[in-house]
Design a protein around this nucleic acid. Structure first.
Lengths: 250, 250
DNA sequence: CTAGTGCACTGGTCGGACCAGTAGGCTACG
DNA sequence: CGTAGCCTACTGGTCCGACCAGTGCACTAG
């Protein structure tokens, strides 16, 4: 007691140091998307490590979506603009290994979408309202065309709302969770017998939501959007999980 | 026109194939957390590739948080239980390169925490209520001790609420976003002159939230929790971003 | 029976080699 | 003179063989 406090030393792999340095350069803005890293053979000189080590570092950076390399490219790896791909990947993994249920995913979408609508009702611009109008028109036109077109228009509507919320985190999480949900149920929806009735009902609901957003009534828009999503997906959620979804509807 | 549709062929790297196979084995449950992969030298035989290629694949799997390897371990890499570390990493990167503002982060926390409270009010068990009670007691005791202890107790409270919501996605996202926010402001809070007053005010707010949760009044708990978080962080959010936060308060 | 010592592994790193692919300069042909 | 085509000098992807510092276990000496 009373002696000097020793901290456990942590052996840091060489490739991790490289990852840290490059990551820092990218996140600090010293390296911008589109710029190129030196070639692997240059980097081994700069970092004084072997090419294997450089490559392992690049693999990690690539897995995180920060850089991308292409064989034969006379330049080095290209710094990528941020994309939610890595986020999407880890959330998809989460959904699989943690066995996220469809109910939880839909519930999360209800939370995000309702918040987006709440904010959009207050912050939306006229252009964004026009986008939402256009998306609903596209949904209506798509009923005759098929489910894929309908789904695309539906996505466009929710994206417009998410953008109108002016919160990037909401936009990105909405996007990620939606694609996971659609991956689970889109096949079932496309095969549903009452698909067309479901689409027409959904369009009506979206119109009500949009009216509330246009009127600036955030709480109403939020409540309607929760109900819309509940009605659209409840048929695919197991009975046992439905009470948790209904807990989000007043 | 009219000819057969050709798809662009995509050259798949050898290490990617390995990543896919191991990932599939883990996500399908064929490999469970705690189990070991064969050694790198074994894997190069099984996949008929060189050790470099095996290692690059393992680096990717490690970056995704699926496995962990330790030098000298007589067994191979260990399959990890899922942890939101990878999710946290990509969201932190997002926050840095996309320049997520503190306002957006706090706004997102308000959304998540309010939803967690709304659900918790309906779904909480008595044990979870007891945890929340204990957390608030710890907060009160920590005012004298210091900010770190207070912050830990505060985290425990919000964690208990998130668990009571029974939605893992809400729990994990809450955890990730909170740690990012705290990374941005905890220094400022610790150095604030009126820190103690802020802590006492926060305790009072938490008690109100808990009363609403105990009473089963979800909407009230949600509204109070938003207000609590707003009041706690608004001082650190730039003036220009505050209206967006207030948009979440009725 | 136990304490200590090797040994047989592990992952981490290195250096060199070869291949297929790309880009851009150069050449030879029109 | 202009351009089509080749050639070269790179790139990243993969392989091989080697060495090192750790680790766990079996074996041995006390």
């Amino acid at each position: 007691m009373g002696g000097p406090r020793f901290e456990p030393v942590r052996t840091v792999r060489a490739y991790e140091r490289i990852v840290e340095q490059v990551e820092e350069a990218i996140e600090s803005g010293a390296l911008c998307p589109g710029e190129r890293l030196p070639s692997e053979r240059d980097l081994m000189g700069q970092f004084s490590v072997s090419r294997s080590t450089v490559r392992e570092a690049l693999r990690v950076l690539q897995a995180r979506g920060l850089v991308r390399s292409r064989p034969g490219d006379p330049n080095g790896a290209e710094v990528q603009p941020f994309s939610p791909a890595a986020l999407h990947k880890s959330m998809t993994t989460l959904a699989r290994v943690e066995e996220l249920s469809l109910g939880e995913l839909v519930q999360f979408r209800m939370v995000l979408d309702a918040s987006a609508n709440l904010l959009a009702a207050r912050l939306r611009t006229d252009e964004q309202l026009a986008e939402m109008d256009a998306a609903i028109a596209a949904m209506r036109a798509a009923v005759e065309v098929g489910y894929d077109a309908f789904s695309a228009a539906d996505i466009a509507f929710h994206d417009a709302v998410a953008r109108a919320s002016r919160n990037k985190l909401i936009q990105i999480c909405t996007d990620v969770v939606r694609s996971i949900v659609l991956g689970l149920v889109s096949g079932k929806i496309a095969a549903a017998a009452d698909r067309e009735a479901l689409m027409r009902q959904s369009i009506g609901h979206h119109e009500e939501v949009l009216a509330a957003v246009r009127a600036g009534d955030g709480p109403l828009a939020a409540r309607l959007s929760r109900q819309t999503m509940y009605d659209y997906y409840v048929g695919y959620v197991p009975e046992g999980e439905r009470p948790a979804l209904r807990a989000l509807l007043e």
